[in-house]
Design a protein around this nucleic acid. Structure first.
Lengths: 208, 208
DNA sequence: GGAATTATATTAGGAATCCTAATTAATAAC
DNA sequence: GTTATTAATTAGGATTCCTAATATAATTCC
């Protein structure tokens, strides 16, 4: 009855198709494919990364990632460095030109920005909250890699305040915030221990 | 300040990557690629369709769609029929084996169902509402094709009731419903005229 | 009615994605 | 020290996906 799970999946499916198609257009403007563009963006945001980590984050196999990095290397946008800690591993790094190109890539598809800006604050906050819960659930299930999000951070204090608009607290910046300010890739993230993560998640999800 | 548009885009981006990767696994179980699986699913749900419409719905170019249909035809899962109304056009149809295969494809990635089911009713409703608004916005911008969703349906009456839990009304089934029951691909959908669509959309979005 | 335009789909050509399976090399376990 | 295990690449091949060009049919404009 009140089970719109299929409709939500339907909606996510449509958006995933759109995202992919928009990725071709945006990346194509820089002479790249979506996978190449995504690699450049990740490296620009997070610094050099091991090949395997990139593959996991993009959800592709290791050989696919190797292919894409080789192509980027041939274009002079990325390179490989041996990892000093593990000589089996290779760290993928941006070249200066790769960093320049990454800076030209849009953060999101062109058409989506005005749509999101057109939503009411409460709509955006609710949407972000729901998406965050879904991502956290998929992480919990091992379906996607853990990211630097509030829900796994040791600085996160869900529902620490009475204020309904800003119930959560970030111990790092020592400030209250609401669902609208939830982060998915915070620079100050520090992974909380398993037990604490589970406790925070339960508390966050319970108070609907 | 309360502008989590970037975070929402971030979340959608992660989910799009996951969706694509999950699509490879699910389709692969039937010996298909994600594009092929998507074509079978669409045909199974909506009946024979013109090649161009399929390409638009999947967000790929016409030649890509032609490729995929040719591959499906070689596998004995789909075929082409000339369109009696327009002899330039070709309608893509499922073979019996194609219909059987389509029935085996999961509605959503395996890991997502328990996650969505684990959300509170209000979370699911809020998430669906937000996603519906985003999709409608992208349709309005011409970025994705219009679908058979409540927000474009002539039977839809947004906020026709006082009941906060079920404020909307569907004139087709003559029943009240809430955000959680919003449909994205309703079999009884009938496209409303432009003016009515805009009016409904404004009313739906305004009452947050 | 006939010519020009537009729309639908396919073909051509080629780069890149993406997979699984097999290989090489380095680390970890025993 | 030998045996797993792990990281990454190579090998091989089907498919995706693009743009540009082509054939055909429908539509529009005189």
């Amino acid at each position: 009855m009140s089970a719109p799970a299929e409709e939500i999946a339907h909606a996510l499916s449509r958006l995933a198709l759109y995202w992919r198609a928009a990725g071709w257009r945006a990346a194509g403007a820089q002479g790249l494919t979506p996978t190449q563009a995504e690699i450049l963006s990740r490296l620009a945001a997070d610094g050099p990364m091991r090949s395997g980590d990139l593959a996991r984050q993009l959800g592709v196999s290791a050989p696919t990632l190797t292919d894409a990095v080789s192509t980027l290397a041939a274009k002079g946008l990325a390179g490989r460095q041996p990892d000093p800690l593990d000589r089996r591993a290779a760290r993928v790094v941006l070249t200066p030109r790769g960093a320049e190109t990454a800076a030209l890539l849009p953060e999101m598809p062109e058409a989506i920005a005005p749509v999101l800006d057109g939503l009411a604050d409460s709509e955006r906050a609710g949407l972000l909250r729901g998406l965050t819960l879904v991502i956290r659930g998929l992480q919990e299930a091992g379906a996607i890699p853990v990211q630097r999000m509030c829900l796994t951070c040791r600085h996160f204090r869900p529902h620490a305040h009475e204020d309904a608009a800003r119930p959560h607290h970030c111990a790092f910046v020592d400030a209250a915030f609401g669902d609208g300010a939830l982060r998915l890739a915070c620079a100050d993230h520090e992974e909380a221990p398993e037990e604490e993560r589970a406790r925070h998640f339960a508390r966050f999800a319970a108070v609907a």
